[in-house]
Design a protein around this nucleic acid. Sequence first.
DNA 1: CGTGCGGTTGAAGTAGGTCAAAGGGTGTGG
DNA 2: CCACACCCTTTGACCTACTTCAACCGCACG
Lengths: 248, 248
Amino acid sequence: MHSPALEGNLAQPVIRRLDALRQLSERGIALLQRAILEGLQRAGQGEDLANEGDPVDSVRIILSGWLCRFKTLEDGRRQITSFILPGDACDACVYLLSVMDHSIGTLTPVIYADIKRPVFERLLAADQSLAQAFWCETMVNSAIQREWTVNIGRRIALERVAHLLCEIHERLRPVGMIDGDSCAFPVTQIDLADATGLSVVHVNRTLQELRASRLITLRDRTLTIMDLRGLQNIALFTADYLHTKRCG
Amino acid sequence: MHSPALEGNLAQPVIRRLDALRQLSERGIALLQRAILEGLQRAGQGEDLANEGDPVDSVRIILSGWLCRFKTLEDGRRQITSFILPGDACDACVYLLSVMDHSIGTLTPVIYADIKRPVFERLLAADQSLAQAFWCETMVNSAIQREWTVNIGRRIALERVAHLLCEIHERLRPVGMIDGDSCAFPVTQIDLADATGLSVVHVNRTLQELRASRLITLRDRTLTIMDLRGLQNIALFTADYLHTKRCG
DNA sequence: CGTGCGGTTGAAGTAGGTCAAAGGGTGTGG
DNA sequence: CCACACCCTTTGACCTACTTCAACCGCACG
Protein backbone atom coordinates (compact mmCIF):
# COMPACT_ATOMS: atom_id res chain seq x y z
CA MET A 1 0.00 0.00 0.00
CA HIS A 2 2.94 2.30 0.41
CA SER A 3 4.82 1.63 -2.77
CA PRO A 4 5.17 4.74 -4.94
CA ALA A 5 3.43 3.01 -7.82
CA LEU A 6 0.28 2.26 -5.87
CA GLU A 7 0.23 5.67 -4.31
CA GLY A 8 0.53 7.25 -7.72
CA ASN A 9 -2.49 5.28 -8.83
CA LEU A 10 -4.48 6.45 -5.87
CA ALA A 11 -4.48 10.02 -7.08
CA GLN A 12 -5.57 9.03 -10.58
CA PRO A 13 -9.32 9.64 -10.24
CA VAL A 14 -8.76 13.13 -8.85
CA ILE A 15 -6.35 14.06 -11.56
CA ARG A 16 -8.61 12.65 -14.26
CA ARG A 17 -11.56 14.51 -12.85
CA LEU A 18 -9.83 17.87 -12.54
CA ASP A 19 -7.95 17.54 -15.79
CA ALA A 20 -11.22 16.87 -17.58
CA LEU A 21 -12.57 20.16 -16.26
CA ARG A 22 -9.48 22.23 -16.90
CA GLN A 23 -6.25 20.96 -18.36
CA LEU A 24 -3.71 20.72 -15.56
CA SER A 25 -0.08 21.70 -15.90
CA GLU A 26 2.59 19.08 -15.25
CA ARG A 27 3.72 21.10 -12.31
CA GLY A 28 0.18 21.35 -10.95
CA ILE A 29 -0.24 17.60 -11.16
CA ALA A 30 3.01 17.03 -9.32
CA LEU A 31 2.16 19.50 -6.57
CA LEU A 32 -1.31 18.07 -6.15
CA GLN A 33 -0.02 14.53 -6.04
CA ARG A 34 2.45 15.41 -3.34
CA ALA A 35 -0.15 17.21 -1.24
CA ILE A 36 -2.47 14.24 -1.56
CA LEU A 37 0.13 11.69 -0.48
CA GLU A 38 1.02 13.80 2.53
CA GLY A 39 -2.56 13.86 3.73
CA LEU A 40 -3.70 10.29 3.17
CA GLN A 41 -6.50 9.13 5.45
CA ARG A 42 -8.97 6.30 5.69
CA ALA A 43 -12.48 5.95 7.00
CA GLY A 44 -14.74 2.95 7.41
CA GLN A 45 -18.22 2.44 6.05
CA GLY A 46 -21.02 4.23 7.87
CA GLU A 47 -18.80 6.81 9.50
CA ASP A 48 -19.56 10.50 9.57
CA LEU A 49 -16.56 12.49 8.43
CA ALA A 50 -18.18 15.73 9.47
CA ASN A 51 -21.31 16.89 11.21
CA GLU A 52 -23.46 19.95 11.03
CA GLY A 53 -21.88 22.59 13.21
CA ASP A 54 -18.33 21.28 12.96
CA PRO A 55 -15.64 23.83 12.19
CA VAL A 56 -14.05 23.34 8.78
CA ASP A 57 -10.35 23.81 8.40
CA SER A 58 -9.35 21.42 5.69
CA VAL A 59 -10.27 20.18 2.26
CA ARG A 60 -10.90 16.50 1.65
CA ILE A 61 -10.24 14.89 -1.67
CA ILE A 62 -11.80 11.50 -2.24
CA LEU A 63 -9.48 8.92 -3.77
CA SER A 64 -11.73 5.89 -3.46
CA GLY A 65 -15.13 5.11 -2.03
CA TRP A 66 -18.51 6.83 -1.94
CA LEU A 67 -19.90 9.39 0.47
CA CYS A 68 -22.97 11.54 0.78
CA ARG A 69 -23.81 14.97 2.10
CA PHE A 70 -26.98 15.11 4.13
CA LYS A 71 -29.01 17.21 6.48
CA THR A 72 -31.32 15.97 9.20
CA LEU A 73 -34.41 17.71 10.51
CA GLU A 74 -35.12 17.80 14.23
CA ASP A 75 -37.66 15.01 13.96
CA GLY A 76 -35.31 12.70 12.12
CA ARG A 77 -36.33 13.27 8.54
CA ARG A 78 -33.16 13.04 6.49
CA GLN A 79 -32.30 14.40 3.06
CA ILE A 80 -29.21 13.44 1.14
CA THR A 81 -28.23 16.51 -0.84
CA SER A 82 -25.52 14.95 -2.94
CA PHE A 83 -23.32 11.96 -3.52
CA ILE A 84 -19.58 12.38 -3.38
CA LEU A 85 -17.74 10.05 -5.74
CA PRO A 86 -14.09 9.10 -6.20
CA GLY A 87 -12.18 12.05 -7.60
CA ASP A 88 -14.49 14.60 -6.02
CA ALA A 89 -13.06 17.25 -3.78
CA CYS A 90 -15.53 17.58 -1.01
CA ASP A 91 -15.45 21.06 0.44
CA ALA A 92 -12.80 22.39 -1.91
CA CYS A 93 -14.23 25.68 -0.91
CA VAL A 94 -16.86 25.06 1.67
CA TYR A 95 -14.12 25.76 4.16
CA LEU A 96 -14.60 29.41 3.36
CA LEU A 97 -17.74 29.22 5.46
CA SER A 98 -15.88 28.06 8.60
CA VAL A 99 -18.74 25.95 9.89
CA MET A 100 -20.41 22.92 8.33
CA ASP A 101 -24.09 23.45 7.61
CA HIS A 102 -24.53 19.78 6.75
CA SER A 103 -23.01 16.41 7.50
CA ILE A 104 -20.91 14.07 5.41
CA GLY A 105 -21.16 10.32 5.81
CA THR A 106 -19.45 7.41 4.11
CA LEU A 107 -21.38 4.80 2.16
CA THR A 108 -18.33 2.56 1.77
CA PRO A 109 -14.84 2.46 3.22
CA VAL A 110 -13.06 5.51 1.91
CA ILE A 111 -9.53 6.60 1.18
CA TYR A 112 -9.11 10.33 1.04
CA ALA A 113 -6.57 13.08 1.34
CA ASP A 114 -7.05 15.61 4.08
CA ILE A 115 -5.38 18.84 3.07
CA LYS A 116 -5.17 21.59 5.64
CA ARG A 117 -6.44 24.94 4.57
CA PRO A 118 -3.08 26.77 4.41
CA VAL A 119 -1.54 23.92 2.42
CA PHE A 120 -4.47 23.95 0.04
CA GLU A 121 -4.27 27.70 -0.39
CA ARG A 122 -0.58 27.49 -1.16
CA LEU A 123 -1.40 24.84 -3.73
CA LEU A 124 -3.93 27.08 -5.48
CA ALA A 125 -1.56 30.02 -5.36
CA ALA A 126 1.30 27.99 -6.78
CA ASP A 127 -0.48 26.77 -9.88
CA GLN A 128 -3.14 28.65 -11.75
CA SER A 129 -4.46 25.58 -13.54
CA LEU A 130 -5.11 23.84 -10.24
CA ALA A 131 -6.94 26.83 -8.86
CA GLN A 132 -9.14 27.04 -11.90
CA ALA A 133 -9.84 23.34 -11.93
CA PHE A 134 -10.95 23.36 -8.31
CA TRP A 135 -13.18 26.36 -8.87
CA CYS A 136 -14.68 24.69 -11.89
CA GLU A 137 -15.35 21.63 -9.81
CA THR A 138 -17.11 23.74 -7.24
CA MET A 139 -19.26 25.32 -9.91
CA VAL A 140 -20.17 21.96 -11.39
CA ASN A 141 -21.23 20.82 -7.95
CA SER A 142 -23.50 23.85 -7.76
CA ALA A 143 -24.98 22.95 -11.10
CA ILE A 144 -25.63 19.42 -9.90
CA GLN A 145 -27.30 20.77 -6.80
CA ARG A 146 -29.59 22.90 -8.95
CA GLU A 147 -30.52 19.90 -11.03
CA TRP A 148 -31.38 17.99 -7.87
CA THR A 149 -33.76 20.78 -6.95
CA VAL A 150 -35.45 20.35 -10.30
CA ASN A 151 -35.41 16.58 -9.97
CA ILE A 152 -37.09 16.52 -6.60
CA GLY A 153 -39.35 19.46 -7.28
CA ARG A 154 -40.74 18.59 -10.66
CA ARG A 155 -40.09 15.01 -11.66
CA ILE A 156 -42.32 12.11 -10.67
CA ALA A 157 -40.86 9.13 -8.83
CA LEU A 158 -39.99 7.05 -11.89
CA GLU A 159 -38.31 9.92 -13.69
CA ARG A 160 -36.62 10.97 -10.49
CA VAL A 161 -34.97 7.68 -9.70
CA ALA A 162 -34.03 7.16 -13.33
CA HIS A 163 -32.48 10.61 -13.43
CA LEU A 164 -30.36 9.94 -10.39
CA LEU A 165 -29.06 6.72 -11.90
CA CYS A 166 -28.23 8.51 -15.14
CA GLU A 167 -26.36 11.20 -13.28
CA ILE A 168 -24.27 8.83 -11.25
CA HIS A 169 -23.47 6.78 -14.32
CA GLU A 170 -22.39 9.88 -16.18
CA ARG A 171 -20.26 11.12 -13.30
CA LEU A 172 -18.50 7.82 -12.83
CA ARG A 173 -17.43 7.63 -16.44
CA PRO A 174 -14.73 10.31 -16.53
CA VAL A 175 -13.04 8.84 -13.47
CA GLY A 176 -12.94 5.42 -15.09
CA MET A 177 -15.32 3.63 -12.80
CA ILE A 178 -17.69 2.31 -15.43
CA ASP A 179 -17.09 -1.23 -16.59
CA GLY A 180 -19.00 -1.79 -19.79
CA ASP A 181 -22.50 -0.78 -18.85
CA SER A 182 -22.05 -1.67 -15.18
CA CYS A 183 -20.73 0.07 -12.13
CA ALA A 184 -20.50 -0.39 -8.41
CA PHE A 185 -23.52 1.07 -6.69
CA PRO A 186 -23.14 0.90 -2.92
CA VAL A 187 -26.33 2.84 -2.25
CA THR A 188 -29.11 1.20 -0.26
CA GLN A 189 -32.74 1.80 -1.12
CA ILE A 190 -32.92 3.78 2.10
CA ASP A 191 -30.21 6.11 0.83
CA LEU A 192 -31.92 6.30 -2.52
CA ALA A 193 -35.14 7.31 -0.79
CA ASP A 194 -33.38 10.00 1.20
CA ALA A 195 -31.71 11.29 -1.93
CA THR A 196 -34.88 11.47 -4.01
CA GLY A 197 -37.26 12.68 -1.34
CA LEU A 198 -39.35 9.49 -1.63
CA SER A 199 -40.20 6.74 0.84
CA VAL A 200 -38.22 3.50 0.84
CA VAL A 201 -41.27 1.52 -0.12
CA HIS A 202 -41.90 3.64 -3.14
CA VAL A 203 -38.27 3.57 -4.21
CA ASN A 204 -38.48 -0.19 -4.07
CA ARG A 205 -41.52 -0.29 -6.32
CA THR A 206 -39.98 2.26 -8.66
CA LEU A 207 -36.83 0.20 -9.05
CA GLN A 208 -38.96 -2.82 -9.82
CA GLU A 209 -40.68 -0.85 -12.53
CA LEU A 210 -37.33 0.11 -14.03
CA ARG A 211 -36.26 -3.51 -13.90
CA ALA A 212 -39.52 -4.71 -15.42
CA SER A 213 -39.01 -2.27 -18.29
CA ARG A 214 -35.63 -3.93 -18.87
CA LEU A 215 -33.84 -0.65 -18.38
CA ILE A 216 -31.61 -1.60 -15.47
CA THR A 217 -30.37 -4.42 -13.29
CA LEU A 218 -29.51 -3.62 -9.71
CA ARG A 219 -28.32 -6.44 -7.50
CA ASP A 220 -25.55 -7.04 -5.02
CA ARG A 221 -24.48 -3.40 -5.05
CA THR A 222 -23.96 -3.48 -8.79
CA LEU A 223 -25.89 -1.36 -11.23
CA THR A 224 -26.15 -2.36 -14.86
CA ILE A 225 -27.80 -0.01 -17.27
CA MET A 226 -29.20 -2.20 -19.98
CA ASP A 227 -30.77 0.56 -22.03
CA LEU A 228 -29.06 3.87 -21.38
CA ARG A 229 -30.97 5.77 -24.02
CA GLY A 230 -34.25 4.44 -22.71
CA LEU A 231 -33.36 5.33 -19.15
CA GLN A 232 -32.33 8.84 -20.14
CA ASN A 233 -35.56 9.25 -22.04
CA ILE A 234 -37.87 8.49 -19.19
CA ALA A 235 -35.64 10.55 -16.88
CA LEU A 236 -35.74 13.57 -19.19
CA PHE A 237 -31.98 13.49 -18.72
CA THR A 238 -29.51 15.66 -20.56
CA ALA A 239 -25.92 15.79 -19.39
CA ASP A 240 -25.41 19.49 -20.10
CA TYR A 241 -25.52 20.47 -16.47
CA LEU A 242 -22.54 18.25 -15.68
CA HIS A 243 -20.39 20.45 -17.89
CA THR A 244 -18.11 17.60 -18.86
CA LYS A 245 -16.53 19.64 -21.61
CA ARG A 246 -13.49 21.56 -20.51
CA CYS A 247 -14.45 24.91 -19.12
CA GLY A 248 -12.83 28.20 -18.19
CA MET B 1 -30.55 59.08 -11.89
CA HIS B 2 -27.07 59.99 -12.95
CA SER B 3 -25.97 62.13 -10.05
CA PRO B 4 -22.96 60.71 -8.22
CA ALA B 5 -24.93 60.59 -4.97
CA LEU B 6 -27.66 58.40 -6.36
CA GLU B 7 -25.22 56.20 -8.14
CA GLY B 8 -23.31 55.75 -4.91
CA ASN B 9 -26.50 54.62 -3.24
CA LEU B 10 -27.17 52.12 -5.96
CA ALA B 11 -24.17 50.04 -5.01
CA GLN B 12 -25.11 50.03 -1.33
CA PRO B 13 -26.92 46.67 -1.18
CA VAL B 14 -24.02 44.90 -2.86
CA ILE B 15 -21.46 46.44 -0.59
CA ARG B 16 -23.53 45.71 2.50
CA ARG B 17 -24.03 42.14 1.38
CA LEU B 18 -20.37 41.45 0.59
CA ASP B 19 -19.06 43.36 3.57
CA ALA B 20 -21.28 41.31 5.84
CA LEU B 21 -19.67 38.16 4.49
CA ARG B 22 -16.09 39.37 4.56
CA GLN B 23 -14.97 42.80 5.62
CA LEU B 24 -14.05 44.75 2.51
CA SER B 25 -11.08 47.07 2.27
CA GLU B 26 -11.66 50.74 1.44
CA ARG B 27 -9.82 50.16 -1.79
CA GLY B 28 -11.91 47.14 -2.63
CA ILE B 29 -15.10 49.09 -2.11
CA ALA B 30 -13.88 51.88 -4.35
CA LEU B 31 -12.82 49.53 -7.11
CA LEU B 32 -16.07 47.61 -6.94
CA GLN B 33 -18.12 50.78 -6.97
CA ARG B 34 -16.35 52.00 -10.06
CA ALA B 35 -16.75 48.71 -11.88
CA ILE B 36 -20.45 48.70 -11.04
CA LEU B 37 -21.07 52.22 -12.28
CA GLU B 38 -19.30 51.46 -15.52
CA GLY B 39 -21.52 48.49 -16.21
CA LEU B 40 -24.97 49.79 -15.24
CA GLN B 41 -27.86 48.13 -17.02
CA ARG B 42 -31.61 47.87 -16.72
CA ALA B 43 -34.17 45.23 -17.49
CA GLY B 44 -37.94 45.22 -17.36
CA GLN B 45 -40.21 42.87 -15.49
CA GLY B 46 -40.72 39.45 -17.01
CA GLU B 47 -37.59 39.52 -19.11
CA ASP B 48 -35.13 36.67 -19.34
CA LEU B 49 -31.61 37.91 -18.77
CA ALA B 50 -30.16 34.59 -19.79
CA ASN B 51 -31.33 31.30 -21.18
CA GLU B 52 -30.17 27.75 -20.88
CA GLY B 53 -27.44 27.24 -23.46
CA ASP B 54 -26.33 30.86 -23.61
CA PRO B 55 -22.61 31.50 -23.43
CA VAL B 56 -21.57 33.30 -20.23
CA ASP B 57 -18.94 35.96 -20.40
CA SER B 58 -19.86 38.39 -17.72
CA VAL B 59 -20.92 38.65 -14.11
CA ARG B 60 -24.11 40.42 -13.16
CA ILE B 61 -24.53 42.15 -9.85
CA ILE B 62 -28.05 43.03 -8.84
CA LEU B 63 -28.51 46.54 -7.49
CA SER B 64 -32.27 46.59 -7.26
CA GLY B 65 -35.13 44.27 -8.15
CA TRP B 66 -35.78 40.54 -7.86
CA LEU B 67 -34.91 37.69 -10.24
CA CYS B 68 -35.08 33.95 -10.25
CA ARG B 69 -33.06 31.11 -11.67
CA PHE B 70 -35.12 28.38 -13.24
CA LYS B 71 -34.99 25.33 -15.43
CA THR B 72 -37.73 24.06 -17.70
CA LEU B 73 -38.37 20.46 -18.66
CA GLU B 74 -39.25 19.57 -22.25
CA ASP B 75 -42.93 19.29 -21.43
CA GLY B 76 -43.09 22.69 -19.78
CA ARG B 77 -42.74 21.77 -16.13
CA ARG B 78 -40.75 24.56 -14.54
CA GLN B 79 -38.68 24.68 -11.39
CA ILE B 80 -37.33 27.84 -9.86
CA THR B 81 -34.05 26.88 -8.26
CA SER B 82 -33.37 30.13 -6.45
CA PHE B 83 -34.35 33.72 -5.98
CA ILE B 84 -31.81 36.42 -6.68
CA LEU B 85 -32.25 39.45 -4.45
CA PRO B 86 -30.75 42.95 -4.44
CA GLY B 87 -27.08 42.77 -3.54
CA ASP B 88 -26.66 39.28 -4.94
CA ALA B 89 -24.04 38.65 -7.54
CA CYS B 90 -25.62 36.30 -9.95
CA ASP B 91 -23.03 34.13 -11.63
CA ALA B 92 -20.08 35.57 -9.76
CA CYS B 93 -18.44 32.39 -10.81
CA VAL B 94 -20.86 30.50 -12.92
CA TYR B 95 -19.03 32.08 -15.82
CA LEU B 96 -16.32 29.53 -15.24
CA LEU B 97 -18.65 27.03 -16.85
CA SER B 98 -18.90 28.98 -20.13
CA VAL B 99 -22.46 27.92 -20.85
CA MET B 100 -25.63 28.55 -18.87
CA ASP B 101 -27.29 25.36 -17.66
CA HIS B 102 -30.34 27.32 -16.51
CA SER B 103 -32.21 30.50 -17.22
CA ILE B 104 -32.51 33.73 -15.29
CA GLY B 105 -35.68 35.78 -15.40
CA THR B 106 -36.73 39.01 -13.75
CA LEU B 107 -39.67 39.21 -11.37
CA THR B 108 -39.57 43.00 -11.26
CA PRO B 109 -37.81 45.72 -13.17
CA VAL B 110 -34.14 45.38 -12.36
CA ILE B 111 -31.07 47.57 -12.21
CA TYR B 112 -27.85 45.64 -12.38
CA ALA B 113 -24.21 45.95 -13.22
CA ASP B 114 -22.87 43.85 -16.05
CA ILE B 115 -19.17 43.29 -15.51
CA LYS B 116 -17.24 41.60 -18.26
CA ARG B 117 -15.17 38.63 -17.27
CA PRO B 118 -11.72 40.20 -17.74
CA VAL B 119 -12.77 43.28 -15.78
CA PHE B 120 -14.15 41.10 -13.00
CA GLU B 121 -11.00 39.03 -12.88
CA ARG B 122 -8.86 42.12 -12.63
CA LEU B 123 -11.08 43.25 -9.78
CA LEU B 124 -10.57 40.02 -7.87
CA ALA B 125 -6.84 40.10 -8.52
CA ALA B 126 -6.57 43.69 -7.39
CA ASP B 127 -8.14 43.26 -3.98
CA GLN B 128 -7.97 40.15 -1.87
CA SER B 129 -10.94 41.08 0.29
CA LEU B 130 -13.17 41.40 -2.76
CA ALA B 131 -12.08 38.04 -4.08
CA GLN B 132 -12.79 36.36 -0.77
CA ALA B 133 -16.13 38.08 -0.39
CA PHE B 134 -17.28 36.93 -3.82
CA TRP B 135 -16.17 33.38 -3.14
CA CYS B 136 -17.95 33.42 0.17
CA GLU B 137 -21.07 34.61 -1.57
CA THR B 138 -20.81 31.75 -4.02
CA MET B 139 -20.45 29.27 -1.19
CA VAL B 140 -23.43 30.69 0.64
CA ASN B 141 -25.46 30.30 -2.52
CA SER B 142 -24.45 26.65 -2.62
CA ALA B 143 -25.55 26.27 0.97
CA ILE B 144 -28.90 27.81 0.12
CA GLN B 145 -29.28 25.46 -2.79
CA ARG B 146 -28.64 22.49 -0.49
CA GLU B 147 -31.28 23.73 1.90
CA TRP B 148 -33.74 23.99 -0.98
CA THR B 149 -33.08 20.35 -1.74
CA VAL B 150 -33.96 19.50 1.85
CA ASN B 151 -36.96 21.79 1.78
CA ILE B 152 -38.48 20.27 -1.31
CA GLY B 153 -37.41 16.74 -0.53
CA ARG B 154 -38.43 16.39 3.07
CA ARG B 155 -40.74 19.15 4.21
CA ILE B 156 -44.51 19.08 3.76
CA ALA B 157 -46.26 21.92 1.95
CA LEU B 158 -46.96 24.09 4.98
CA GLU B 159 -43.43 23.81 6.32
CA ARG B 160 -42.04 24.28 2.86
CA VAL B 161 -43.78 27.53 2.06
CA ALA B 162 -43.13 28.84 5.56
CA HIS B 163 -39.46 27.98 5.20
CA LEU B 164 -39.15 29.85 1.93
CA LEU B 165 -40.73 32.94 3.47
CA CYS B 166 -38.36 32.74 6.44
CA GLU B 167 -35.38 32.45 4.15
CA ILE B 168 -36.30 35.41 2.01
CA HIS B 169 -37.03 37.50 5.07
CA GLU B 170 -33.67 36.61 6.54
CA ARG B 171 -31.83 37.33 3.30
CA LEU B 172 -33.46 40.71 2.82
CA ARG B 173 -32.48 41.93 6.24
CA PRO B 174 -28.72 42.46 5.76
CA VAL B 175 -29.34 44.48 2.62
CA GLY B 176 -31.75 46.73 4.45
CA MET B 177 -34.91 45.76 2.64
CA ILE B 178 -36.99 44.86 5.66
CA ASP B 179 -39.27 47.57 6.94
CA GLY B 180 -40.41 46.64 10.44
CA ASP B 181 -41.83 43.18 9.92
CA SER B 182 -42.78 43.80 6.30
CA CYS B 183 -41.03 43.57 2.98
CA ALA B 184 -41.78 43.79 -0.69
CA PHE B 185 -42.66 40.39 -2.06
CA PRO B 186 -43.09 40.52 -5.82
CA VAL B 187 -43.54 36.77 -6.18
CA THR B 188 -46.77 35.42 -7.63
CA GLN B 189 -48.32 32.24 -6.29
CA ILE B 190 -47.32 30.69 -9.60
CA ASP B 191 -43.69 31.49 -8.90
CA LEU B 192 -44.08 30.27 -5.35
CA ALA B 193 -45.43 26.99 -6.68
CA ASP B 194 -42.54 26.62 -9.09
CA ALA B 195 -40.09 27.37 -6.31
CA THR B 196 -41.54 24.90 -3.83
CA GLY B 197 -42.38 22.08 -6.21
CA LEU B 198 -46.09 22.40 -5.40
CA SER B 199 -49.12 23.24 -7.53
CA VAL B 200 -50.53 26.77 -7.60
CA VAL B 201 -53.77 25.60 -6.09
CA HIS B 202 -52.04 24.03 -3.17
CA VAL B 203 -49.79 27.02 -2.60
CA ASN B 204 -52.91 29.13 -2.45
CA ARG B 205 -54.48 26.93 0.19
CA THR B 206 -51.22 26.76 2.12
CA LEU B 207 -50.93 30.54 2.21
CA GLN B 208 -54.47 30.73 3.47
CA GLU B 209 -53.55 28.36 6.24
CA LEU B 210 -50.58 30.54 7.22
CA ARG B 211 -52.85 33.57 7.19
CA ALA B 212 -55.51 31.83 9.24
CA SER B 213 -52.86 30.95 11.81
CA ARG B 214 -52.09 34.68 12.03
CA LEU B 215 -48.49 34.08 11.05
CA ILE B 216 -48.34 36.23 7.94
CA THR B 217 -50.15 38.75 5.81
CA LEU B 218 -49.50 38.69 2.08
CA ARG B 219 -51.33 41.20 -0.08
CA ASP B 220 -50.50 43.59 -2.84
CA ARG B 221 -47.00 42.21 -3.23
CA THR B 222 -46.22 42.95 0.39
CA LEU B 223 -45.35 40.30 2.93
CA THR B 224 -45.78 40.95 6.61
CA ILE B 225 -44.57 38.39 9.06
CA MET B 226 -46.77 38.81 12.09
CA ASP B 227 -45.20 36.03 14.14
CA LEU B 228 -41.65 35.33 13.03
CA ARG B 229 -40.91 32.85 15.80
CA GLY B 230 -44.09 30.96 15.04
CA LEU B 231 -43.35 30.88 11.34
CA GLN B 232 -39.82 29.65 11.92
CA ASN B 233 -41.15 26.98 14.22
CA ILE B 234 -43.52 25.41 11.80
CA ALA B 235 -40.90 25.76 9.05
CA LEU B 236 -38.23 24.02 11.12
CA PHE B 237 -36.13 26.98 10.12
CA THR B 238 -32.68 27.77 11.45
CA ALA B 239 -30.61 30.45 9.78
CA ASP B 240 -27.28 28.67 10.15
CA TYR B 241 -27.08 27.73 6.50
CA LEU B 242 -27.19 31.38 5.48
CA HIS B 243 -23.83 31.90 7.18
CA THR B 244 -24.60 35.50 8.03
CA LYS B 245 -21.66 35.72 10.38
CA ARG B 246 -18.47 36.88 8.74
CA CYS B 247 -16.60 33.99 7.26
CA GLY B 248 -13.18 33.20 5.85
C1' DC C 1 -28.64 -20.17 16.13
C1' DG C 2 -30.39 -15.84 17.02
C1' DT C 3 -30.25 -10.90 15.62
C1' DG C 4 -30.32 -7.14 12.65
C1' DC C 5 -30.36 -4.94 8.40
C1' DG C 6 -31.91 -4.40 3.77
C1' DG C 7 -35.28 -5.70 0.51
C1' DT C 8 -40.09 -6.96 -0.72
C1' DT C 9 -45.18 -7.23 -0.45
C1' DG C 10 -50.01 -5.93 0.56
C1' DA C 11 -53.60 -3.00 2.31
C1' DA C 12 -55.31 1.23 3.62
C1' DG C 13 -54.86 6.27 4.14
C1' DT C 14 -53.81 11.06 2.73
C1' DA C 15 -51.32 15.01 1.05
C1' DG C 16 -51.36 17.15 -2.70
C1' DG C 17 -52.54 17.22 -7.87
C1' DT C 18 -55.82 18.12 -11.61
C1' DC C 19 -59.73 20.10 -13.68
C1' DA C 20 -62.98 23.58 -14.17
C1' DA C 21 -65.02 27.74 -13.25
C1' DA C 22 -65.50 32.16 -11.33
C1' DG C 23 -63.92 36.70 -9.20
C1' DG C 24 -61.07 40.91 -8.91
C1' DG C 25 -57.85 44.21 -10.55
C1' DT C 26 -55.55 46.52 -14.26
C1' DG C 27 -54.38 47.96 -18.65
C1' DT C 28 -55.85 48.79 -23.39
C1' DG C 29 -58.36 49.89 -27.30
C1' DG C 30 -62.51 51.41 -29.42
C1' DC D 1 -65.73 55.94 -20.50
C1' DC D 2 -66.91 51.55 -21.15
C1' DA D 3 -65.82 46.84 -22.70
C1' DC D 4 -62.87 43.46 -23.21
C1' DA D 5 -58.84 40.82 -22.20
C1' DC D 6 -55.46 39.09 -19.42
C1' DC D 7 -53.38 37.75 -15.35
C1' DC D 8 -53.49 36.36 -10.71
C1' DT D 9 -56.17 34.52 -7.06
C1' DT D 10 -59.67 31.75 -5.13
C1' DT D 11 -63.01 27.90 -4.63
C1' DG D 12 -65.04 23.26 -5.10
C1' DA D 13 -65.05 18.47 -6.53
C1' DC D 14 -62.70 14.66 -7.64
C1' DC D 15 -58.61 11.84 -8.29
C1' DT D 16 -54.05 9.56 -7.63
C1' DA D 17 -49.25 9.19 -6.63
C1' DC D 18 -47.15 8.46 -2.97
C1' DT D 19 -46.99 7.47 2.19
C1' DT D 20 -47.66 4.72 6.18
C1' DC D 21 -48.09 0.63 8.62
C1' DA D 22 -47.20 -3.98 9.25
C1' DA D 23 -45.48 -8.13 8.18
C1' DC D 24 -42.31 -11.35 6.11
C1' DC D 25 -38.08 -12.94 3.69
C1' DG D 26 -33.19 -13.71 2.94
C1' DC D 27 -28.74 -13.12 4.20
C1' DA D 28 -24.60 -11.90 6.74
C1' DC D 29 -22.46 -11.82 11.00
C1' DG D 30 -21.31 -12.59 15.81
